[in-house]
Measured scan of single mutants.
Amino acid sequence: IRVTEDENDEPIEIPSEDDGTVLLSTVTAQFPGACGLRYRNPVSQCMRGVRLVEGILHAPDAGWGNLVYVVN
């Protein structure tokens, strides 16, 4: 998935696990201090948080898609 520190920055590609999840530790390896991800909902244009359970980030209902995710 494509992740950036700010919406206007160049994104970095972060690998997902075989089950489609992303480990928070993978994100923090590239973005120290990150505690989660958010993205701009293409329909509402509002920022939406990615579900985080026990250090594992779960894809939105429509999958990770071609969105750019921003670190929290």
Rank of each mutant, 00 (worst) to 15 (best):
residue 4 T to N: 03
residue 63 G to K: 03
residue 39 Y to G: 00
residue 12 I to Q: 09
residue 33 G to V: 04
residue 64 W to Y: 02
residue 10 E to D: 10
residue 59 A to R: 07
residue 54 E to Y: 08
residue 43 V to T: 15
residue 6 D to I: 06
residue 33 G to W: 06
residue 48 R to E: 15
residue 64 W to S: 04
residue 70 V to D: 03
residue 59 A to V: 06
residue 42 P to K: 10
residue 16 S to K: 14
residue 1 I to A: 10
residue 60 P to F: 02
residue 35 C to Y: 08
residue 32 P to A: 07
residue 39 Y to F: 10
residue 29 A to F: 10
residue 8 N to M: 10
residue 40 R to P: 05
residue 62 A to E: 14
residue 12 I to P: 00
residue 11 P to N: 03
residue 64 W to T: 03
residue 20 G to K: 05
residue 33 G to C: 10
residue 70 V to T: 12
residue 49 G to P: 14
residue 47 M to Q: 09
residue 48 R to Q: 15
residue 35 C to F: 09
residue 67 L to N: 14
residue 58 H to K: 07
residue 49 G to M: 15
residue 4 T to M: 08
residue 32 P to M: 04
residue 59 A to N: 02
residue 53 V to F: 12
residue 6 D to H: 10
residue 24 L to R: 00
residue 65 G to N: 04
residue 53 V to K: 10
residue 23 L to E: 08
residue 68 V to D: 07
residue 54 E to I: 02
residue 14 I to A: 04
residue 32 P to D: 04
residue 34 A to Q: 01
residue 11 P to H: 07
residue 9 D to G: 11
residue 28 T to E: 12
residue 36 G to D: 00
residue 22 V to C: 06
residue 42 P to I: 05
residue 29 A to I: 01
residue 13 E to S: 12
residue 40 R to H: 12
residue 44 S to Y: 05
residue 39 Y to A: 03
residue 39 Y to W: 09
residue 46 C to Y: 08
residue 67 L to M: 13
residue 21 T to G: 05
residue 20 G to V: 02
residue 61 D to S: 13
residue 47 M to W: 13
residue 26 T to Q: 12
residue 15 P to R: 14
residue 21 T to K: 06
residue 10 E to W: 07
residue 18 D to G: 13
residue 20 G to T: 05
residue 22 V to F: 01
residue 37 L to R: 00
residue 29 A to L: 12
residue 10 E to V: 11
residue 42 P to G: 09
residue 16 S to N: 09
residue 22 V to G: 01
residue 27 V to E: 00
residue 28 T to F: 07
residue 69 Y to V: 00
residue 28 T to P: 02
residue 55 G to D: 05
residue 20 G to C: 04
residue 38 R to Q: 15
residue 60 P to A: 04
residue 16 S to D: 02
residue 51 R to I: 08
residue 10 E to M: 10
residue 27 V to P: 03
residue 61 D to Q: 11
residue 13 E to N: 15
residue 14 I to T: 01
residue 26 T to M: 12
residue 70 V to Y: 15
residue 66 N to P: 06
residue 12 I to M: 08
residue 27 V to T: 00
residue 42 P to A: 08
residue 41 N to C: 13
residue 24 L to M: 07
residue 65 G to F: 04
residue 47 M to K: 03
residue 8 N to P: 04
residue 1 I to W: 00
residue 62 A to H: 15
residue 68 V to A: 09
residue 12 I to F: 07
residue 32 P to L: 01
residue 52 L to Q: 10
residue 64 W to Q: 02
residue 21 T to E: 03
residue 58 H to V: 09
residue 22 V to S: 04
residue 11 P to R: 01
residue 66 N to V: 05
residue 2 R to W: 11
residue 34 A to G: 05
residue 17 E to L: 10
residue 35 C to E: 13
residue 14 I to K: 00
residue 29 A to S: 11
residue 25 S to H: 06
residue 28 T to A: 15
residue 63 G to D: 05
residue 9 D to S: 11
residue 66 N to Q: 13
residue 18 D to Q: 14
residue 61 D to I: 08
residue 68 V to T: 13
residue 27 V to Y: 00
residue 16 S to G: 10
residue 64 W to D: 11
residue 64 W to H: 02
residue 9 D to R: 13
residue 58 H to W: 08
residue 8 N to Q: 09
residue 71 V to N: 04
residue 52 L to N: 10
residue 6 D to N: 14
residue 51 R to L: 13
residue 23 L to W: 05
residue 58 H to Q: 11
residue 40 R to L: 12
residue 15 P to H: 11
residue 20 G to F: 05
residue 39 Y to M: 05
residue 66 N to H: 06
residue 30 Q to E: 11
residue 66 N to F: 00
residue 54 E to K: 12
residue 15 P to G: 08
residue 36 G to E: 01
residue 21 T to W: 03
residue 35 C to M: 15
residue 43 V to F: 08
residue 50 V to D: 02
residue 38 R to M: 12
residue 68 V to Q: 07
residue 34 A to H: 01
residue 18 D to M: 11
residue 59 A to K: 05
residue 41 N to V: 12
residue 52 L to K: 07
residue 48 R to M: 15
residue 6 D to V: 07
residue 60 P to M: 05
residue 22 V to W: 02
residue 51 R to S: 11
residue 53 V to N: 10
residue 63 G to N: 07
residue 52 L to I: 13
residue 63 G to T: 05
residue 4 T to I: 09
residue 31 F to I: 06
residue 31 F to Y: 07
residue 52 L to G: 04
residue 4 T to C: 13
residue 59 A to S: 09
residue 30 Q to C: 14
residue 12 I to C: 09
residue 13 E to V: 09
residue 64 W to P: 00
residue 44 S to A: 10
residue 57 L to G: 02
residue 13 E to R: 11
residue 65 G to Q: 11
residue 5 E to M: 11
residue 8 N to A: 13
residue 29 A to Q: 10
residue 23 L to H: 04
residue 38 R to G: 10
residue 58 H to D: 01
residue 23 L to R: 13
residue 17 E to H: 01
residue 35 C to Q: 13
residue 53 V to Q: 14
residue 6 D to L: 08
residue 62 A to L: 09
residue 38 R to C: 10
residue 72 N to T: 12
residue 31 F to W: 06
residue 9 D to E: 12
residue 56 I to T: 12
residue 72 N to P: 02
residue 57 L to V: 00
